[in-house]
Design a protein around this nucleic acid. Structure first.
Lengths: 234, 234
DNA sequence: CGTAACCTTGATTAAGATCAATTCTCGTGG
DNA sequence: CCACGAGAATTGATCTTAATCAAGGTTACG
């Protein structure tokens, strides 16, 4: 279904000209994964970054005790695994590059493109445009990481949850105006993303429910009191 | 002492040609701060990023309860506050830009340059080189943020401390080979950086000491058993 | 040499992880 | 269409870690 022709579906490449996209096409390759399949591990040698044409991917780390923490959830249109590409440029680089985290497909049909390092770096040199776009994408991700750290170190679990729900509301907000949130991931994954575990997340949902702020019905969260939610994380 | 002429002391600009440096000089300005002085707050409107010519700066967030968390410690040669510069480029940008965190000088004589947004973005358009350097700096920082999150969510405080000490050893390692670490910051700031508080950090030091791994004498940490330290965080 | 900033230690409390037992939900095959 | 079973989620009891509260000690520096 999705082909190399869809390259411009990726935000990073959305403004490429026809000829530029053609150049890219020559060296990228399309791959498909099923739910739960691993795209790369943080131990693997680096070959290039990925862009999502369809589906959803989680980027995560695992502790020695086996606990998992999800750093990012990436959706169709976005890219991941770009970081190492720019690390062989810094003077203090030594040894082989690896991916910074693990990546696994979350949806049954997840289609990605692999953009290999060397040809892409060449491509970048003559495409200041894409360079700037990439900086913009990095900036966005850093802002996200900052606020993620902030929330993990300074907020308790219910606050983190309310923060997450508000962000989801904002996302939906652009499309529809009702205040129902449909969780796109399992609560296990959500817990891992919020830096906690399933049981604790469950109790946080209950707490917000008891305060009359939300209603939980499976994967559907109805926000009854947006102001309350906003007040909550302050 | 430090002047606009020192622009190439910043890693980001270290490879600029004479003429390029000249261009930059026209619009940057030098500022000096004393220990404890605030450089910017996360509520302030964004004007541009900073580069450190001399001294040290902490980048941090503060919770509503007044707890502080240090995201980065930046030293002479590095830049900070670049993120918002690339955020007005993304399509979903709305409203005025602010700094993503607070910045405060940690040393008595801290000298920085302010690089204002608009002229620098213009400059970037014709300097693919600097663009790539910036990507490399961003990549490095993201790698750091990732491992920071990993350590905060998956390790306990003593592990985080041992991780920190190992990184410091590595840094020193390039210069001298002995295994003494001279803390450049107060233990209060270190605690804040490790996502904990002074008392807990103190106990973590004691724990590592009791295991015979380190010796603590004020701001000097002697690592007696590097292997033990390495083993510790696994 | 005195004072303020810095650090340590102990006792107590609180948040969240772990362990264990159910319950709920939903897709699949009988 | 129902029943079964597996994965997902909830709930309770207990344990662990780290935050908080409180007091005292140490160091650096004017």
């Amino acid at each position: 279904m999705h082909e190399v022709n869809d390259l411009r579906r990726l935000t990073l490449f959305s403004e490429l000209s026809e000829t530029e996209a053609e150049m890219l096409k020559r060296f990228v390759s399309v791959k498909k994964y099923r739910k739960g399949e691993i795209i790369f591990l943080d131990t693997e040698p680096y070959s290039g970054f990925y862009g999502i044409l369809e589906g959803m991917v989680k980027i995560y780390k695992i502790s020695n005790e086996g606990r998992e923490h999800i750093l990012h959830l990436e959706y169709s249109g976005s890219t991941f695994g770009e970081v190492p590409m720019f690390e062989n440029m810094s003077s203090d680089f030594e040894g082989g590059l690896t991916y910074p985290a693990n990546a696994t497909a979350l949806e049954e049909t997840t289609t990605v493109v692999l953009v290999p390092m060397k040809p892409f770096l060449e491509f970048l040199k003559s495409n200041n445009n894409v360079c700037l776009k990439m900086l913009s994408a990095f900036a966005k991700r850093m802002r996200f990481l900052n606020s993620h750290i902030e929330s993990i170190t300074l907020d308790d679990v219910s606050k983190r949850l309310s923060r997450y729900l508000l962000k989801e509301l904002e996302k939906k907000g652009r499309k529809s105006s009702d205040s129902d949130i449909e969780l796109e991931i399992t609560k296990y994954d959500l817990a891992s993303h919020l830096g906690t575990i399933l049981e604790t997340l469950s109790r946080a949902f209950r707490k917000l429910h008891n305060e009359g702020i939300i209603e939980v019905k499976g994967k559907t969260i109805s926000v009854l009191d947006v102001k309350g939610l906003r007040r909550y994380q302050k």
